[in-house]
Design a protein around this nucleic acid. Structure first.
Lengths: 128, 128
DNA sequence: AGCACGTTCACGTGGCGTGAGGGTCC
DNA sequence: AGGACCCTCACGCCACGTGAACGTGC
């Protein structure tokens, strides 16, 4: 949650076990964007460090070059947004169906005949 | 639609303007899987050629290495499957809501009072 | 004053495209 | 028999990680 910039480059490099020069290279390629102090010193946030770890996994374990890392980061971001949209849609499906049921229950109370009581909903909702 | 293997390697290489040796390299890395004749000659399908073009775009235009291409192909495939699932879910949402409406319309016909005609649906569906 | 930061340049390694050599199939 | 296929090996280039040199900030 608290994601303020805090680590200068040597600390960040230690945290992810990489060469400081490598971190500078990654910034130059636009893969991480650490903040800077007034004196131009890089400050890496926890999120920056996490991204560094991801880049490290992609390069050392999977052997991607930096152009590939950039594309993979882009696609994974896109995938994550689509994932969220999908979950939202699933929730909406449940809610909308429920809303329609509620609505009709209200209407039935208004319009039903006194001699014909409204049956329980569970008896006339067929779908699971 | 018709996607039979048909191009031997020199023809496929001409089609995508690449070196035949490069195509063999891509197969070795598992990026394309052309069929073979009984005499062990590679035969590329239209789909194979299309994949070659994609690999070409990723390598020459975007500068990925082959490990990166592999990951990007995997992610794009995943993205496409998720896209289809999303469309399916959107359709389902519409259909389910409609199904509930239909169900209640039937019920209202059965249970309404003769002195209280059922109002038009457009009047008691509030949500957009 | 000293140490870690900044940038730029140089070097080594490895991936990848391409060509050559030699064998096999139609 | 010739040409295009197969495979393996070799070479050159470029990306990238790393170190050095040198200047600047705390």
């Amino acid at each position: 949650m608290d994601d303020r910039p805090r680590y200068m480059i040597s600390v960040a490099a230690d945290l992810v076990d990489m060469h400081p020069q490598t971190l500078r290279l990654y910034e130059q390629k636009g893969l991480v964007r650490p903040k800077r102090t007034a004196g131009n010193t890089r400050l890496y946030s926890e999120r920056d460090v996490e991204r560094l770890r991801l880049v490290q996994r992609l390069t050392t374990e999977l052997g991607l070059n930096l152009a590939g890392v950039e594309q993979v980061l882009r696609l994974e971001d896109q995938l994550q947004r689509m994932q969220r949209r999908l979950e939202r849609l699933e929730r909406e499906l449940r809610d909308r169906v429920e809303a329609v049921h509620k609505q009709y229950r209200r209407e039935l109370v208004l319009y039903r005949s006194p001699s014909h009581p409204v049956p329980r909903r569970s008896q006339w909702t067929s779908t699971s």
